[in-house]
Design a protein around this nucleic acid. Sequence first.
DNA 1: ACTGGAAGACGTCAGTCTGA
DNA 2: TCAGACTGACGTCTTCCAGT
Length: 268
Amino acid sequence: MWWHQHNLCFRHPVDEDYSGDLEEKVATIAETDESAESEGVIDSHKRREILSRRPSYRKILNELSSDVPGVPKIEEEKSEEEGTPPNIATMAVPTSIYQTSTGQYIAIAQGGTIQISNPGSDGVQGLQALTMTNSGAPPPGATIVQYAAQSADGTQQFFVPGSQVVVQAATGDMPTYQIRAPTTALPQGVVMAASPGSLHSPQQLAEEATRKRELRLMKNREAAKECRRRKKEYVKCLESRVAVLEVQNKKLIEELETLKDICSPKTD
DNA sequence: ACTGGAAGACGTCAGTCTGA
DNA sequence: TCAGACTGACGTCTTCCAGT
């Protein structure tokens, strides 16, 4: 596998190895002037150990950015929506925000907690917490919502991704929610469970274990995505650093040549 | 049109790191 | 100490493109 950019051609056998090559390149260019005559040979085992214990890309890049003014920082987890309602922004950092048909805001926080806030309220007031779970073997796309707060008013309806609508289908101690397409009256599946009771039976324990596994896989999936995004940003940063250092190096060499000419004029 | 390789994105597992 | 975050490694899938 070969990878072309800036008229350079880097070998790129496995995607994970490329950033290592680039790091080496940056280090080599940065140290050319001082340590050109140093041994420069690192024991491969030691090097592997160092690499395997490297801190996260975010950390590295942020350290780089503090050393080098031009290097951008990797942003912390940012919310998807720019126009976050003020009464939600002060709470946990949401990953998704939806607005209900009655004007309420629903924020799904990182931990899977759903927060419902009334537009007129000032943050904490009117907030209801729900817990998102995916238990057992749900049908594709289905989401289990565990209702942890009692709704005081009547039927509630809010929008979820995919142009679907969550409708409160029953009231009372066991409110039920259904996901429906907004234009059809046919429910696509009941996805609501009441507040969780105690888990005792083997089946319930198995379901809980499955649920935990699903949750872990989901989080890991998101973490892997985020990790790859950071890595790409990190590699971009290294590439631009290579370019800058190469230019600097060239300038210094030219300067050195000029000074050499001045200090030791030719004797005819 | 078909095919095979390159490249990129993704999901998962396993191991390490880190903060409480 | 432990749970959660992070990341390398691996396999799979999809898309693109050049060659036939």
